[in-house]
Design a protein around this nucleic acid. Structure first.
Lengths: 198, 198, 198, 198
DNA sequence: GATGAATGAGCTTTCATTCAT
DNA sequence: AATGAATGAAAGCTCATTCAT
């Protein structure tokens, strides 16, 4: 008995997201998604190769959402100053508004280190790092930031934001001006020292 | 047929740690620990209530190891300057030398958010936060650091270190002077501005 | 590799009944039912939530079978005389022909007092008591039977039948006219004294 | 570290009884008895060959207690009238005062049908039947009771009492004069018809 | 008498995935 | 596009019992 649907795929994704955010990725079973979506097991596997593919699809959407929030940071000609500040600010604001989603991404990142089913996700995350590294190298060549190995640079700029959001996701109260504060700190941590004029 | 042992409990813990570090917590089965330790299933459960209790015991040891590495940071009368720098430095050096263990701790932290079996672990982690917050408040009262909400302070000081170690754990090359660099940055990010003299 | 079946659910129930009757409920493992039915573990749990649900389904069928045997007793307008005699007679005859099934029901009843997995079964049994009590109260209002608290009435009417069947189930020889004898005794034990005419 | 005890065996039995009555025989683990008694696993097995032996020992005591309650019934020369009445009365009164113990005995009886560990218990129960049968045959020879196959006689006399006590054990309210009522009914159900004089 | 570490077969149940219809 | 019956490996864990000390 096939019932009509606008978009089964969409329904499944929505249901999966709800489940993942509520209980986490591991604790979410295909059965739970089946019930939450109203779709059959077969339907789910018709659209998604496996559970990992569902996570992948949702993460792609999430990343898109966050990128939009930090759009300014993506302009390749923007000054480092603005790009970095906006990037961090965008991340923090988006993260404060999407704690459950961020927690989900964190779980996935963590699991991806061991779970072959999430290999694609791992690849995507690593690619993001490559882009970031290139971006930072560009700023360094323009002498806007101190040259730093990428892992250190990334840590200095985004580490506090992630750390902060992780605490908020674990139940801590958000701090009023966190986004601005962390954006400022990120920039302060990597900016090149002012050229001393004669 | 009971065979004699020096310390069955120890053997089990060692085997469990090996498995956890190699494959991760979730991917490690009791059966794997059984085989790696030579103990029987029953013995494992004789000493540990469940898989989570094994993780808990190992984490306690790991934390002890890292605390030793950052011993100076624990002296309540040490100047903030030194306490914070040494704390971060110790964490980074220990983390660089124990990447697999840190990855394990990260997985556990992530899973603890959803898995009731790891509830105790979550509690322990939260307690660690409480202690850190008290420590920081102490420094703030002494005007050595800027007053900041704890989540922000924690993020500014330790966020970069965790972020950096996470990248190293995921395969990135360690950077030569990372420990000093991150220690310095941590202090710079929270220190109180020099009192301006008249 | 899915093979076609007339009715997997039925096959599983049949196999489960066979096992339960042969070895008892507790001693029957899901593995035994799997082998006896040819179904997979997963199939069994696809149709039945747990072992208790299997027992429940079989008991429902057994009760239906016995009710059919005592159909006359269910006519609400039948005289108490006939209803009670037939009810007991039907129970005894059915029980003599289904000793193993009765033993199984007895085991379940006994276990249901402590095993949460059999909570539903307990509820069903209690409901049966409620119906019987109502029935008896009806007869009492019509002055066909002496008024008695239900536990006593139930005991006087059905206690001997159950006791007898329990002995037969434990290996004693069935007695030739037991059904009629016990039916008669049941009626004699509860009937109202003849109204003395002037 | 051996601590002194008046009677370890006794402590273990008491603890076992408490557990059995609270949770039932199957649901009681040796571990539970260990904790409740304060004895070690080894101690328990020092005194009792296995779990079944514990049940056996407790049942023996229980039977002794009930026999004492129905002492009069055991006088071989007592008239059937009195022996049967007192026997049933004693059983009911004792059962009303020891519902949990009776429930335990019922569980054991039920399990003994399938569980080899309880074979001894089964033998003891069957022996009780043999004694009862001999007793009844004696009365029949004296023409005090109608001749009946033992299963039927047993059912007529004791069936109601057991049925009633089972209901009380399952939570029904005890009925005020149940003991007398059931004793009377037991006698009425088996007594020989008054010899009709010419 | 007393201890408790050690055993290991065996249990119920879960769940991602397949595939005939 | 959709269904849901069927699969079966694998998991975590229990527990009566043994036995060296």
């Amino acid at each position: 008995m096939t019932r009509p649907h606008r978009d089964r795929r969409r329904e499944i994704l929505n249901a999966a997201l709800t489940c993942f955010l509520e209980r986490g990725y591991r604790a979410t079973t295909i059965g739970a998604i089946r019930e939450a979506s109203g779709a059959s097991t077969g339907s789910i596997y018709h659209f998604f190769a496996n559970k990992g593919a569902l996570a992948r699809a949702l993460l792609d959407e999430a990343v898109a959402g966050w990128s939009a929030a930090a759009a300014a940071a993506l302009d390749p000609d923007a000054p480092a100053d603005q790009a970095i500040r906006e990037s961090v600010r965008g991340l923090v604001l988006w993260g404060e508004a999407n704690t459950a989603l961020l927690r989900f991404m964190d779980e996935i990142r963590s699991l991806a280190l061991n779970d072959p089913e999430l290999a694609e996700v791992r690849a995507a995350l690593e690619q993001g790092q490559t882009l970031g590294a290139a971006r930072f190298a560009h700023f360094a060549r323009r002498r806007e930031v101190r040259p730093r190995p990428w892992p250190v640079a990334h840590a200095l700029m985004l580490g506090p934001a992630y750390s902060y959001l992780r605490l908020v996701g674990a139940g801590n109260e958000p701090a009023p001006a966190a986004a601005d504060l962390l954006a400022e700190a990120a920039w302060a941590a990597v900016r090149a020292p002012a050229a001393t004029s004669p």
